[in-house]
Nucleic acid binder design. Sequence first.
DNA 1: TCTGGGGTCCTAGGACCC
DNA 2: TCTGGGGTCCTAGGACCC
Length: 424
Amino acid sequence: MIGLIDCNNFYVSCERAFQPRLEGVPVGVLSNNDGCVIARSNELKALGVEMGTPAFELRPLLRQHRIQLLSSNYELYGDMSSRVQQVLEEYSAGVEPYSIDEMFVRFDGFAPEQMLAHAQELFTKVRRYTHIPVSVGIAPTRTLAKLANRAAKKIPIYGGVCVLRPGSAQCEALLQQVSLGDVWGVGRRLVERLGLLGIQSAWDLAQAEPKQIRQRFSVTLERTCLELKGIPCIEMNDSGEARQRIMTSRSFGRLTGNRQEIHQAIRQFAQRSAEKLRTQNSVARAVYVFLKTNCHRPDLPQYSPSTIVELPQPTDDSRDILHAASQAFDAIYRPRYLFMKAGVMLVDLVDANRQQLSLLDTPESRADRERNDRLMATLDKLNGRIGRGTVTFGRPSASAAWHLRCANRTPRWTTHWDELPKVH
DNA sequence: TCTGGGGTCCTAGGACCC
DNA sequence: TCTGGGGTCCTAGGACCC
């Protein structure tokens, strides 16, 4: 059996773990730049605030409903996520993080009654050790575990834990209740197209003929269909596996057309991407850069260019990546446009240890490479120990437009010595 | 005034090969 | 009227996820 453990209102729960005053009041956590709501407490959901609501639309309501809006604190959320994972690992050797707030867990060899008791214990322990409330869904396939989890969260009789067995009356009832769009892997488009065939609920899709689904749609949907029947066919990508693309992008704090300013942002993103690349021990063969104007401002001229620059050799050296990113930027930047967002993506990644050696490789170039590797390692070590941005290529100016707005970020309680909570 | 930042997989179609 | 018959590889774009 496979369990899906999902942290309820995760970002809000992380904030509440350290600030009890946030319990019981409507709390929202905002995206980067304090742009829109990306996590909501139950109280905020009850006020009808949807995911993605722009913060400025809520401003008039704040006082009346005593709404607390917080800037996002990803360092805290990342650390809390790994704490949850640690607790889960005491209950199973097979924990596969799926996102920052969801983890799949393997449970093998449990008798049905044991399974429920085990899941309930895990449910209690995560709460006790991390202060994060979770929902637990267990089923033979990932897609059904997702549905079980949803039931555990939304249907009060389950009390946060639901074990689902295909073929049971309980499973059938649940599938009939659940609309298609709530099935993992079925998005808006597929809901429309499936509707034309009279497939409207999760149950309808579970009853469909997989081969036909494959013909009319895709192998992906065929797998979903089989999984709903209880036949496992979705495996996780091995969590140890390296990413195939690495992206760093941001919306700016304000619109800007200033070449220097945007170039600085690109340089910053390139360096951050290179760091991420070295963390997973890969090298990149090309750098992709894009700019975007603000599509929410139809009164302004729109321009959203992008381009790719290939690297002479696969590399993880910040300086080479910076250089390529700057070249790409020069190629697409045009004055007279006001840009809203920019980003750098490293593509065509390969394992640093398995890259093919160039025919031009000589002892000298090897010595060079080793020296560069040591330089990058030192850079990463300093930035890791003292703080991100301690050592950079070129010094970013303090007032640049691309600096994030985060007016209301809570302390990084668990990852910075000088921000530890104080006990009186 | 104000609107997130990442990722994945699959498919169709074009370029190119013999 | 009619225009071979296979392949492979790559890329862009769509759809999905959190």
